[in-house]
Design a protein around this nucleic acid. Structure first.
Lengths: 338, 338
DNA sequence: CAATAAAATGAAAGCGCTTTCATGCAAAGT
DNA sequence: ACTTTGCATGAAAGCGCTTTCATTTTATTG
């Protein structure tokens, strides 16, 4: 079944040069005479030569691959970030290795180790919360790592992101400015997820500064449309009923789920209830009346993380922390408090 | 910056056995005595040994990685399939390498080659249309390949999917049964995309069998919500206006975009216009009035493709063609012709 | 044109592992 | 007891490439 596959030695022989010259001709064209390079290139093309990545990695001690460990690939924000990373890497001859752990920390350890074993030259992680085994493995591998969607207060780690707390505070402030005083929150699971935790803290603190509390109207759930819908349902079906006029959600999927539930129940948005999201996915703009949300440039985050990794691999220094611009996008789901 | 990393030789020495024994103890525990294996395992744990994937791949001539080449990762159906592939592979100690080409065939060639160079042991491709260079490269690499989301009439290729033509015909028949006679179609770009082509053909043929034609009301566009919306707008803004009562869409994103456009324009769905999708993504069920669509078990496709690849790598035979069950899901966007 | 510097090439040593192949040694058969 | 079988182990040969180092060729200069 396996066809004969030409090795570099075959190319060298066919070109009438030594193995080392052939290697250089293909890898560092500047090191060989133009005519030799041409001979080698011709021979390579003639034989359909395809370099053997593992051999190359073993000899050169770098694999020209970067790993990205994501909570899930089934979320538009990570999908676009991934796309951006892959594109940036490809431009420099690097390949992206992807792994998702479905928000399960033991899986995260496993897949991270798998990537490290595959010899990735660098790593992109999402958020700052990770099992200690992950940190240890990355440390031991001694490869550069970029943390994304988050900042690091200690200033120790390399990260590209934004302050989830401040961002969330900004959204909350928008609702306060509209006169809302009774809030509810749909949050992602906070265990092992610093982004969810920070966003929740942002709401809490902003309200606390006005002497308001939201503690008894917080639902933690999975970050999907369906779960957002179910979470709002749970909130509305409490004996207290709808005792809030503003609903701040941990991401757009939750918010849109909530919006759909309102439409089904005939709750007017924003007339009776204002809803905010987080991320600004495509659907947020498309679904009437348009979701008020915080725009996160996820492709930008991915692109920057990849670019920074490439810089560091090239031996250049980068700022430890890089912030991406975020922006409040006011659309139709927020309005004055009733 | 690089920490010292233990090699297998170090483990062997620390365990007081030879390199070969250490290798066997870790890879084929059945080949060594229980106490030796234990010694080696202890030593490995003590030194924090992490196998070197490239070296292993070079020596054993397999990398324990599988590659998947996707049109895009920014589509729920591919996201869930990817997740399923990764999960299935992980259970057997394999890792997934992902590459997306954004529906650009030159990119497809590049990324496929990159994957092959990285030494993947098997490949998952989407659809049956690929640039000849891709087929050639896969052929030459001599690795097993699974084609997904499609069937192969020649019976030559290994594939797991369904007949896009029949599936599309089924949806069209549903609309015919409801009394619709004037159709429009929102299709994905058909160039280099057999799935889009087959789906379109399915509509055409089913209508032709009833003496109907749709040729002058077909829009080819990119498979996103936004583009679906724009495409319907283009259709409605023709001088002929809305001269159709049924709109068959190439996938759910297009259909939902069209639905949103209708809601914005005040066109009653399904009162004035019936809309059908394809894929049955989560949102199709959630967005009122619920999209009538064809359910494709995308996670199932991914899981089966991975499992089949593993089977073949283990030297076992699998049926060349594996069909997954598809199902028409009737929801609120289709109704009797006005 | 010889002397020297610079550039291009080749020989060879691994990179860290798997995998034959050979060897030693205990259990089994005669 | 003596060969035979089988199992556990070790020695060593690569896997296909990169990269140092030594050597040859070419360009440069007094």
């Amino acid at each position: 079944m396996h066809k004969f596959s030409a090795r570099l030695a075959d190319v060298a022989q066919s070109a009438g040069v030594s193995l080392s010259t052939a290697s250089r001709a293909l890898a560092e064209p500047g090191l060989v005479r133009a005519d030799t390079r041409e001979k080698v290139e011709k021979a390579a093309a003639r034989l359909g030569y395809m370099p053997h990545g593992a051999a190359r990695a073993l000899a050169s001690r770098r694999s020209r691959t970067i790993g990205a460990v994501l909570p899930t690939v089934d979320n538009p924000i990570f999908a676009s970030a991934t796309q951006a990373i892959a594109r940036e890497l490809a431009a420099s001859g690097y390949t992206l290795l992807l792994a998702a752990y479905d928000y399960a920390s033991d899986t995260e350890v496993t897949v991270t180790r798998a990537l490290l074993q595959r010899g990735v030259d660098g790593l992109v992680l999402v958020g700052g919360d990770h099992p200690p085994e992950v940190f240890r493995a990355v440390e031991q591998a001694g490869i550069p790592c970029e943390f994304t969607w988050t900042l690091d207060s200690s200033g120790y780690r390399h990260c590209v992101g934004f302050s989830n707390r401040l961002a969330s505070a900004r959204v909350t402030q928008h609702l306060l400015d509209l006169g809302h005083r009774r809030f509810a929150v749909l949050s992602g699971h906070t265990a092992g997820n610093d982004r969810a935790r920070e966003r929740l803290a942002g709401v809490r603190e902003t309200l606390a500064a006005r002497g308001l509390s939201v503690d008894e109207r917080i639902v933690e759930t999975t970050l999907t449309l369906r779960h957002g819908r179910a979470a709002l349902r749970a909130l509305l079906d409490r004996p207290e009923g709808r005792d809030f006029t503003a609903l701040a959600c941990g991401n757009d999927l939750l918010a849109l789920g909530a919006l759909l539930e309102c439409q089904e129940r005939g709750i007017r948005v924003p007339g009776e209830l204002s809803i905010t999201g987080f991320d600004d996915i495509e659907l947020a703009a498309e679904l009437p009346p348009g979701l008020t949300t915080l725009h996160i440039p996820s492709a930008n985050i991915g692109q920057r993380a990849a670019a920074r990794l490439l810089e560091r691999l090239a031996g250049r220094e980068v700022e430890r922390e890089e912030q991406v611009p975020i922006e409040l996008i006011v659309r139709g789901t927020t309005g004055p408090a009733p």
